[in-house]
Amino acid sequence: MIIADENIPLPIIETLVKNKIEMISIFDNYRGISDLEIIKLAQNPPKIILTEDKDFGDLVFAYNQNQVSVILLRYHYSELEKIISILLKFLLNHTIKNYSFVVITTKSIRIRKI
């Protein structure tokens, strides 16, 4: 299951829902909660945080919030359609092992075990 952070654009959320990817939208369900609260929400049962917020990298690696998996999207807004396509293909074709930090750009996908 995916937890879409508040900063995830609606076209991404709509595409995931349309493709039957199970998800929770922070914007729709938990608006205003902190990043630490999102991490706690993602831990039990395990869910993957989808975000554009680099602060999650700090929380995971510098502050030892490492019992979570994160997908960080890095792209320019003009590349939205391309990043949607890459993200969807990734989610449909990969299983993210627990406790991974994934960075998806329009040019690469990096997966780092936490």
Score class of each variant (00 low, 15 high):
51 T>D: 07
42 A>I: 04
69 S>R: 03
3 I>Q: 02
28 D>L: 15
25 S>W: 03
20 K>M: 07
46 P>C: 06
87 L>Q: 05
23 M>R: 05
41 L>P: 02
89 K>F: 12
92 L>P: 00
96 I>S: 06
14 E>F: 02
114 I>A: 08
105 T>G: 10
86 I>D: 10
99 Y>H: 11
16 L>S: 06
23 M>L: 15
32 G>I: 10
35 D>G: 09
101 F>E: 03
80 L>I: 12
56 F>I: 04
112 R>H: 03
46 P>G: 05
112 R>V: 06
67 Q>C: 11
33 I>W: 04
35 D>P: 06
54 K>D: 11
113 K>R: 12
111 I>M: 12
95 T>N: 08
54 K>L: 13
37 E>T: 11
53 D>S: 01
51 T>K: 03
11 P>Q: 00
3 I>F: 00
2 I>G: 03
44 N>P: 14
1 M>S: 14
94 H>Y: 10
111 I>A: 09
20 K>W: 01
79 E>L: 10
79 E>R: 06
66 N>F: 13
41 L>F: 05
60 V>S: 05
78 S>D: 12
100 S>Y: 04
26 I>K: 05
29 N>A: 15
78 S>F: 13
48 I>F: 01
79 E>S: 10
74 R>Y: 02
34 S>T: 15
90 F>G: 08
75 Y>F: 15
67 Q>F: 11
92 L>H: 01
5 D>A: 04
33 I>Y: 02
63 Y>W: 12
107 K>S: 15
35 D>W: 02
69 S>C: 03
33 I>A: 09
82 K>I: 13
108 S>Q: 14
53 D>I: 00
49 I>L: 11
93 N>W: 00
3 I>G: 02
56 F>H: 06
97 K>W: 01
113 K>A: 15
51 T>C: 07
30 Y>K: 14
12 I>G: 02
95 T>Y: 03
113 K>D: 13
106 T>A: 11
72 L>W: 00
62 A>Q: 13
29 N>H: 12
105 T>C: 09
80 L>K: 07
110 R>Y: 07
103 V>M: 13
28 D>H: 09
1 M>I: 10
28 D>N: 13
61 F>W: 04
71 I>Y: 00
67 Q>P: 06
48 I>E: 07
14 E>R: 14
78 S>N: 14
92 L>D: 00
99 Y>K: 10
40 K>R: 14
5 D>Y: 00
104 I>R: 02
17 V>D: 08
44 N>A: 12
40 K>I: 14
63 Y>A: 12
69 S>E: 01
58 D>L: 11
107 K>D: 15
59 L>A: 03
48 I>S: 08
97 K>Q: 12
65 Q>A: 09
14 E>W: 02
42 A>V: 04
33 I>G: 06
38 I>G: 07
21 I>F: 04
90 F>R: 05
73 L>T: 00
